[in-house]
Simulated scan of single mutants.
Amino acid sequence: MSGRRTTHEDAHDPAPTWTPRLGDLAHDSSADRTGVVVEVPGDGVFSYHLRPERGGADPEWTAPADGSTLSPADD
Rank of each mutant, 00 (worst) to 15 (best):
A11I: 01
A63Y: 04
D32Q: 05
V36I: 07
A31Q: 09
D66F: 15
S30N: 15
W61D: 08
D43Y: 09
V38Y: 01
E9R: 03
H27P: 06
P14V: 13
T17W: 06
V38L: 04
F46K: 06
D10E: 12
A65W: 09
Y48M: 04
A73D: 11
E9Y: 01
T69W: 13
D75W: 08
P64F: 04
R33S: 11
S68L: 09
D66R: 13
E60M: 09
H12N: 02
T7G: 03
A15L: 09
H27I: 13
F46M: 09
M1S: 06
P59D: 11
A26E: 00
G3S: 08
S29T: 14
L70M: 00
M1H: 03
D24N: 11
V37E: 08
G67W: 02
S71A: 04
T6V: 01
A65E: 15
P41V: 02
G42Y: 00
G55D: 01
D74A: 15
R54I: 11
P72M: 01
A73L: 10
E53S: 12
E53H: 05
W61M: 06
A65L: 14
S29W: 06
L50K: 04
T19W: 11
L22A: 05
R4V: 07
V45S: 11
V36C: 02
E39N: 02
L22S: 10
P14Y: 00
A11L: 01
S30R: 10
D58Y: 13
T17E: 09
D43A: 14
H27W: 13
R51G: 08
R54V: 14
R4G: 13
T69F: 02
P52M: 04
T62E: 12
D32N: 09
T19K: 12
G42A: 12
D13S: 03
D74P: 13
E9T: 00
H8S: 11
D66T: 07
Y48N: 12
S29M: 08
M1Y: 12
V37R: 00
E60D: 02
H27A: 14
D32A: 04
G42Q: 03
T62R: 07
E60W: 15
L22F: 05
G55T: 10
P72N: 03
R33N: 08
R51M: 05
T62Q: 15
P59M: 12
A11F: 00
V37H: 11
D32C: 03
A65H: 15
Y48D: 09
R51L: 02
H12P: 00
T6G: 07
A31D: 02
P72C: 12
D28W: 05
G23N: 00
D66L: 09
T34P: 06
V40Y: 10
D43F: 06
R21M: 14
A26K: 12
D43V: 04
H27E: 04
R54W: 14
R54D: 09
G44K: 10
E9K: 04
D10S: 05
V45Q: 03
R5W: 13
P41S: 06
T62G: 07
W18V: 01
D10I: 03
R33Y: 01
T34A: 00
D66I: 03
G35F: 06
L70V: 11
H8N: 02
